[in-house]
C-alpha cells in the first residue's frame, strides 16, 4: 500500500513542478572492476577495468531513451547499477530519488527489468505460475494484478500461452512473457536490456508496438539498450551512445546520423562473385572492401539496391549477394570517423 502512495506523490510532484520531473539521475558515475589475470604459472596480476568511466545524465519521467554502444562499452554495467545489483565505485546515482545499491529492495517495487538474454520466468512451469509468483513478490493487490495481467495478455497475445511451460515457448513468446512479468506491478521505469535480440521481424514489431503504447498511455519511462538501430528509430526520442565507459553522444536519433561522417548513412551490398576479380566498377556505389571472391559495395541508405544489382549481374559473374542494413556499430564507427 505504501508503494501506491509513493507512486501517486511522485506523479503529482511532476505535474506541480512545472518542468519535467527527473526520474533517473547519474552524476560522475564510475564502476571499476579488479580483474586477476594469470601471469606465469602461479603468479597472478591484478589490474583494473573501468567498465563505466564517469557518466552523467538525467532522464525525465515519460522519456523513452535508447542506450547504445558496442559490446563491452559498459551498457549492462550501467543498467546493473541502476537496478542496485552493482554498487558504483564513484559518483552519485538516483532512481526515483532512491540510491539503488543502498535500497535495492525498495527500488525494485518501482522499476521493471527485462534482460533480453535471461529470463525471470519459471522454466519448467506454465507461464501463468510465474505471474502468480510476481503478484506475491511485488505484493500486488488482486484487482490491480488482474487488470494489469489482462491488459498485458491482450496486448502481447499471451492468452494461448498461459498454460504452456516456459521451456516450450519460442524466443519471441518468451520475451513477450518476460516483458509482461516486468510490468505487473506498474513500475515507473522499465529497463530493457536487448529486448529484441534474436527475435524475428514480426515479434520485434509486436514488442515495439507494445512499448510505444505503454509509454503513450501509462507514461512509463523506458531505458533500453540495443544493437538494433530500428529499435532506436521507431521508439526513442532520445539516444545516448556509450563507448569505453564514457558517454560520447546524447541527443536525438536524427542527430546521431548527423554526427556520422557523411551525414547520411549507407547500406552495404555484399557480392559473392564466382571467382576473384579486381574491384568491380558500378555507378552509384563504391567498393570498400575486397576479400577473395567477395566484395563490399557501400551505397546511400536512401537509394534503391535494384539498379546496382542489375548492373553487377549484367557485367560480372555473380553467384550470390546480400544487402546489409546500417547498424549501430556502423553509425558509431562513422561518428568517430567524422570527429577524427
Amino acid at each position: 500500500m505504501g508503494v501506491d502512495a509513493g507512486v501517486d506523490a511522485g506523479v503529482d510532484a511532476g505535474v506541480d513542478g512545472g518542468g519535467p520531473e527527473v526520474l533517473i539521475e547519474l552524476h560522475g558515475v564510475e564502476k571499476v572492476f579488479a580483474v586477476r589475470r594469470r601471469a606465469g604459472l602461479l603468479r597472478r596480476e591484478k589490474h583494473q577495468v573501468r567498465a563505466v568511466d564517469g557518466i552523467s545524465f538525467e532522464v525525465a519521467r515519460g522519456e523513452v531513451v535508447g542506450y547504445i554502444g558496442p559490446n563491452g562499452a559498459g551498457k549492462s554495467t550501467t543498467v546493473k547499477m541502476l537496478t542496485g545489483i552493482l554498487t558504483p565505485s564513484a559518483g552519485r546515482l538516483r532512481v526515483a530519488g532512491i540510491d539503488p545499491a543502498r535500497e535495492r529492495m525498495r527500488l525494485a517495487h518501482r522499476i521493471g527489468v527485462v534482460f533480453g538474454q535471461r529470463t525471470t520466468l519459471w522454466w519448467d512451469l506454465p507461464l501463468k505460475d510465474s505471474y502468480g509468483l510476481m503478484r506475491r513478490l511485488y505484493r500486488i493487490p488482486r484487482a490491480r494484478f488482474a487488470e494489469n495481467l489482462e491488459r498485458c495478455v491482450d496486448r502481447l497475445d499471451l492468452g494461448p500461452l498461459l498454460d504452456v511451460p516456459v521451456r516450450q515457448l519460442s524466443l519471441g513468446q518468451r520475451m513477450r512473457g518476460d516483458i509482461a512479468a516486468a510490468l505487473l506491478h506498474d513500475p515507473e521505469v522499465l529497463y530493457l536490456d536487448e529486448p529484441t535480440i534474436g527475435l524475428d521481424v514480426v515479434s520485434k514489431a509486436k514488442v515495439r508496438e507494445f512499448l510505444r503504447q505503454l509509454n503513450a498511455e501509462r507514461g512509463t519511462t523506458v531505458l533500453l539498450t540495443t544493437h538494433d538501430l530500428q529499435d532506436i528509430e521507431q521508439l526513442c526520442g532520445r539516444v545516448m551512445v556509450i563507448d569505453h565507459g564514457r558517454l560520447v553522444y546524447d541527443g536525438t536519433p536524427a542527430g546521431l546520423h548527423a554526427a556520422g561522417a557523411a551525414g547520411e548513412s549507407e547500406r552495404m551490398l555484399v557480392l559473392h562473385l564466382e571467382r576473384e576479380l579486381p574491384a568491380v566498377c558500378v555507378e552509384g556505389a563504391r567498393v570498400v572492401k575486397v576479400e577473395g571472391p567477395r566484395q563490399w559495395l557501400a551505397f546511400p541508405a536512401g537509394a534503391s539496391a535494384a539498379p546496382l544489382v542489375a548492373q553487377v549481374a549484367a557485367r560480372y559473374p555473380l553467384s550470390d549477394l546480400s544487402v546489409r542494413e546500417p547498424d549501430i556499430e556502423d553509425v558509431i564507427a562513422r561518428m568517430y570517423a567524422g570527429r577524427g
Binding site: G84, I85, R104, H109, R118, T119, L137
Partner: peptide, 13 residues
C-alpha cells in the same frame, strides 16, 4: 557462471 544470477539478485526477495 552465465550471469543469470543477476535476475535473482534484483528481485525484491
Amino acid at each position: 557462471r552465465t550471469g543469470d544470477i543477476a535476475v535473482d539478485l534484483y528481485r525484491p526477495a
